[in-house]
Computed example of a mutant assay.
Amino acid sequence: MRWLVLLTEFDIHYVTKKSIRESIVVDHLASLPVSDGRVIDDDFPDEDVVVVTSLSSWRIYFDGAANHSGYGIGVLLISPHGDHISRSVCLAFSDRHPTTNNIVEYEACILRLETALQLGIKQMEVFGDSHMVLRQIQGEWKTRDVKLRSYHAYLELLVGRFDDLRYTNVPRAQNQFVDALATLASIIDILENIVVRPLLIESRFVLAHCYLIGEAEFDDGLPWYHDIYKFLRLGAYPEAATAKDKRALRQLATRFMIYGETL
């Protein structure tokens, strides 16, 4: 509020900030040196700052795919906590309307903005490998193709609903996840009224059989980890262990350690 009151006496015209080279800032600061004896009047000391807001760290990636099987688009939304929210859409209208690679890219770009707005996100960093779409969104390039003008007009409406958007063009090699989502949607024929739940992707670093713990034929009163503890402490195997059992125990024991007397 103090800023607003003090700035009302000036006739300030706000324009969109263009990107500048770092050397321009350096040259400007070098031309206005501040001597050590100069007193700087800070009208807004730090103790008067109530809250500092910053850009949300939401990130979103988008891409489109076109091949002999069809057209698909993919969107990957990454939350500030690192959660991945993915969407994959098959463009089924391609049989009735002429579709180009640029149209697919616009569809993908629009889908990611709609997805973010549905989640209530108003500040976001946008990543994509479609240089043309990103340039046209930022107004640096004109949309000359008649088929793309309607897309561009709708895109501008969506962009206006955000508080802040940052665009970054990334190489296709760094956009592989959404490229895979788009390709998946383009090659799979999904029947109408069929719902495909979100895809769960995990990383597994241990062989599946290493999780196997055989059921004991009788209850000897020992905990399930007794053999692991004994192997790590003494290097001993169970009496009736076969060569396969010993190998499995060695692999399973690599996931544990003994600290003091605790496994």
Rank of each mutant, 00 (worst) to 15 (best):
R112A: 12
L113Y: 02
L113I: 04
L113M: 09
E114F: 03
T115E: 13
A116P: 03
A116F: 05
L117P: 02
L119K: 12
L119I: 11
I121W: 01
K122D: 13
K122C: 11
Q123I: 09
M124W: 00
E125D: 11
F127Q: 01
G128V: 06
G128S: 14
D129W: 00
M132R: 01
V133N: 00
V133C: 06
Q136A: 06
I137Y: 02
I137F: 04
I137H: 00
G139F: 06
G139Y: 03
E140R: 04
W141F: 05
W141E: 14
T143R: 04
T143G: 08
D145Y: 03
D145H: 08
V146E: 15
K147L: 12
L148S: 12
R149M: 13
R149C: 07
R149I: 10
S150L: 12
Y151H: 10
H152I: 02
H152S: 00
E156Q: 07
L157M: 04
L158T: 13
L158D: 07
V159K: 09
G160W: 02
G160I: 10
G160H: 07
F162A: 08
F162N: 05
D164I: 14
L165M: 14
R166S: 10
R166F: 01
Y167G: 07
Y167N: 03
T168A: 09
N169K: 10
N175M: 11
Q176K: 03
V178T: 05
L181Y: 05
A182G: 06
A182H: 01
L184Q: 10
L184P: 03
A185E: 09
A185Q: 09
S186C: 12
I187G: 08
I187W: 04
I188W: 11
D189N: 15
I190N: 08
L191V: 15
L191E: 15
L191I: 12
E192M: 14
V195A: 15
R197Q: 14
P198Q: 07
L199S: 13
L200Q: 10
L200T: 15
I201W: 00
I201G: 08
E202M: 12
E202C: 08
S203Y: 04
R204I: 08
R204A: 11
R204E: 08
V206Q: 02
H209N: 11
H209A: 05
Y211P: 01
G214T: 06
A216C: 07
A216Y: 04
E217W: 00
F218T: 09
D219G: 03
D219C: 14
G221V: 10
G221D: 09
G221K: 10
H226C: 12
H226T: 11
H226K: 02
H226L: 04
D227G: 06
I228F: 05
I228S: 08
Y229M: 02
K230S: 07
K230C: 04
L232A: 02
R233G: 06
R233E: 13
R233F: 06
L234Y: 11
L234V: 13
L234K: 06
A236H: 01
A236L: 07
P238F: 05
P238Y: 03
A240S: 14
A240H: 07
A240L: 05
T242V: 02
T242R: 02
A243L: 14
A243S: 11
K244L: 14
K244I: 09
K244S: 13
K246G: 09
R247N: 09
A248N: 11
A248F: 01
A248Q: 12
L249M: 07
R250K: 15
R250E: 13
Q251L: 15
Q251D: 15
L252C: 10
L252M: 13
A253F: 00
A253C: 13
R255T: 09
